[in-house]
């Protein structure tokens, strides 16, 4: 009976891409996150983090690491730390809808309106990712 339901191929492609990326992201986030929590070395010292996590985020990083954070270099350049590797997993999760949109775009065929919608969303997504790098001061502190 369920086979009578027609699901548009772009829906199926979207779902498959999202599912695969989510599994990878979750595995990376949880495995390295747990290694960090059981005591393997991390970029952020947990005791210092606990002592300062009541501060707004900019002050937190000044107190804990003496740095100002703009962009993704803070964890991408410290991938020896388990917490930064866990952050990589979170990034993969946050990329899942983008990859799903690209997969759906590839299957949109002659559906011009949806090709436009997907292109707009992909552009918005890429902007959201790039904004902290290309416009670090806009909207920030």
């Amino acid at each position: 009976m369920e086979k009578q339901v027609y699901i548009d191929p772009l829906n199926i492609s979207f779902a498959r891409a999202m599912e695969i990326t989510t599994y990878i992201g979750l595995a990376v986030m949880v495995i390295f996150g747990l290694l960090y929590l059981v005591g393997l070395s991390g970029f952020v010292d947990m005791k210092q983090a606990i002592a300062n996590w009541n501060l707004p985020v900019s002050e937190f990083w000044k107190e804990v690491k003496g740095i100002e954070i703009h962009g993704y270099a803070w964890f991408l350049s410290n991938l020896k730390g388990m917490d930064c590797l866990s952050m990589l997993g979170i990034c993969i999760l946050a990329l899942a809808p983008l990859l799903a949109l690209v997969a759906a775009l590839a299957r949109a065929g002659g559906q011009k309106a949806y090709i436009i919608f997907f292109l707009i969303m992909i552009a918005e997504f890429v902007f959201a990712i790039m904004k902290p790098i290309i416009l670090p001061g806009v909207g920030g502190h």
Binding site: V57, Y72, D83, P97, E124
Partner: peptide
């Protein structure tokens, strides 16, 4: 997912809080 990048880029996502 789109909004998450703002928080990640500001350092407002801490695995110590997020993972558990």
């Amino acid at each position: 997912a789109a909004a998450a990048w703002i928080y990640i880029a500001k350092g407002a996502v801490l695995p110590m809080i997020v993972v558990p």
